[in-house]
Design a protein around this nucleic acid. Structure first.
Length: 550
DNA sequence: GCCGTTTTCGGCCCGACTGTTTTCAGTCG
């Protein structure tokens, strides 16, 4: 039993409580307890055994009993009871924007609605507008929201595609007649949002393999002699391209690139490997990430793309001091274990209340903790930073004496998203003018498949960043992948330096450095254009110089 | 439900926005 399982159960209780009309603070109390458990440094089971669980701030008698029950039996009878009161899948309605737990709860109690279909019917029939708090405008917004939610149902973030692809490759490996299998399509191109997972399967016996695929996916369907479709878990569409082993490379090439790339490539000769296809056609190899367009095919020289192993350190890492799930030491140790020469911790600034932003006094505590823990991860260098809010007027959260305490500042927007393009651009430009700002964090604030970013004038921002020497972050969080790779070449043209950051809120989120690197590769970037491919001395010198001039 | 105390009851993290109100509740960050 680990603390995250306990926290998840408490979160679920909290969500059910918010659905019902009881005291909203009760729901909050469970949520607070969940966060407290998540951030525990001690083992939750040990705490329960020692009778010390209620000593955790935010955990009282009632919650303590629930936690103890979960630890002992693996489940909570209170949670089971709550689950029994609502249809499963009721939280699916949360996918509709502007619908939160309160409204979902009201809709269920008043109209018995618990699914998108029922919601749609109620909105169309006018039944919805009869409920207190829902006017005609609500029905309209909800119908639009349902359409929006449905459209996104068939799209997935890249990591989902990677996982499904890996799982299918493993399954295929256990089929005797399969000689080779490889993921192609948008997943292989590392596109940030994918619609399906393509796999090329090499076999001498297409009929046998086709038949075997019936058990590998749901909704099995034969499209044509060499193409089979189906659906994997998570409802991801899967397309198998069956091919003879001596054409494996050709099919891989044909099904990896976009039509624009494949068309421009011209005639694809038969070959066992993809490398052989390139060799036979005397075309220099194009990395899969670069096969969105035909641009590279036309180029004489290929850029050597940055690789994950080129990264020698990172910035933009959160800890339990703000909204991270692991402690300073845990985050430092994880970076150390990954072999990084340096890591920059940056918890939220005080304006970000909702994310547990650090007041000046909490900041002092955090820096003291860093001073204690950094000794344990030597010789890795630990930089002290902050992810400071860019306030609506473009000024940076924290006053002058505080800003001087940092080795680096990631400046990001976390409020007033709906600002118009011009106003938003001015806001960011003003932030770039602040000499304390080292990095510009997640440029557009987008959340893939859930929220559009704010609109900005990229060119003006890139110009100013270049002029002021501010590094622009490539936020590698798979939900963000912000800046979009399509705009990065324009930054590079202007001499803007970029840096790949994980925006990690837990140890596992250091993996965002992988997705972040893919973004840089898709943009055609080389290691030298990425700040955190530099060694620790060079980085230290850069930060020191910048501090001195601010 | 939790917490803290001017200690067993009243408050609980903030602010903008929107649609629904006629003074506010819910959502979102």
């Amino acid at each position: 039993m680990d603390k995250f399982t306990v926290a998840r159960a408490l979160d679920e209780i909290s969500r059910y409580l918010e659905l019902s009309d009881s005291n909203p603070f009760k729901a909050r109390a469970f949520e607070r307890a969940a966060r407290a458990i998540e951030k525990l440094e001690d083992d939750v089971v040990a705490l329960v055994d020692a009778g010390n669980i209620t000593k955790v701030p935010g955990v009282g008698k009632a919650t303590g009993d629930i936690i103890a029950e979960i630890v002992r039996t693996g489940s909570s009878s209170y949670l089971e009871e709550l689950r029994g009161q609502y249809p499963s899948g009721i939280f699916g309605m949360l996918r509709v924007p502007k619908l939160g737990l309160k409204k979902v709860g009201i809709l269920f109690t008043e109209l018995g609605i618990s699914s998108l279909d029922e919601l749609e019917a109620a909105a169309k029939s006018g039944r919805l507008s009869k409920v207190k708090g829902f006017g005609p405008k609500s029905a309209e917004t909800i119908l639009k929201g349902i359409e929006w939610a449905r459209k996104r149902e068939s799209n997935f973030l890249l990591p989902v595609g990677i996982e499904v692809g890996e799982m299918l490759r493993e399954k295929l490996a256990s089929i005797d007649a399969v000689e080779d299998a490889e993921v192609s399509g948008s997943v292989r191109r590392r596109l940030e949002v994918i619609r399906n997972v393509n796999l090329v399967v090499a076999t001498k016996n297409i009929d046998v393999v086709t038949d075997a695929l019936r058990t590998v996916v749901d909704r099995f369907e034969i499209v044509d002699e060499t193409t089979v479709k189906g659906v994997a878990r998570n409802d991801v569409e899967v397309i198998f391209h069956l091919t003879a082993p001596n054409e494996f490379g050709s099919t891989l090439l044909r099904t990896t690139g976009t039509p624009a790339f494949v068309d421009a490539f011209g005639k694809i000769p038969k070959a066992r490997t993809e490398k052989d296809v390139f060799k036979k056609t005397e075309i220099a190899y194009v990395e899969p990430e670069r096969r969105e367009t035909a641009d590279d095919l036309a180029k004489k020289k290929r850029t050597k793309l940055v690789e994950l192993s080129d990264l020698r350190g990172t910035f933009h890492v959160h800890t339990t001091f703000s909204d991270g799930r692991h402690s300073v030491l845990e985050m430092l140790s994880a970076a150390h274990d990954r072999g990084y020469e340096y890591v920059g911790l940056s918890d939220h600034s005080k304006a970000a209340y909702y994310a547990g932003g650090l007041s000046e006094s909490r900041l002092e505590e955090q820096q003291a903790e860093i001073a204690t823990q950094e000794k344990k991860v030597r010789p890795m260098r630990v930089f002290r930073g902050t992810e400071a809010d860019i306030l609506p007027d473009g000024s940076i959260d924290y006053g002058l004496p505080t800003l001087k305490k940092f080795d680096f500042v990631v400046a990001s927007i976390h409020s007033q998203f709906q600002m118009g393009r011009d106003e938003m651009t001015e806001r960011i430009l003003r932030a770039l003018d602040d000499p304390h700002v080292t990095f510009l964090g997640h440029l557009t604030g987008r959340r893939l498949l859930s929220r559009e970013g704010y609109s900005v004038d990229y060119d003006r921002i890139f110009d100013r960043a270049a002029e002021r020497g501010v590094i622009i972050e490539i936020n590698g969080n798979p939900q963000r992948l912000d800046v979009d790779w399509r705009y990065l070449p324009r930054a590079v043209e202007r001499g803007v330096v970029l840096s790949i950051h994980p925006d990690a809120h837990s140890i596992s989120e250091y993996n965002a450095l992988i997705t972040g690197t893919w973004v840089a590769r898709k943009a055609g970037l080389a290691a030298k254009q990425i700040f955190n491919t530099r060694g620790v001395e060079e980085v230290e010198e850069f930060l020191a110089k910048r501090r001195a001039s601010s």
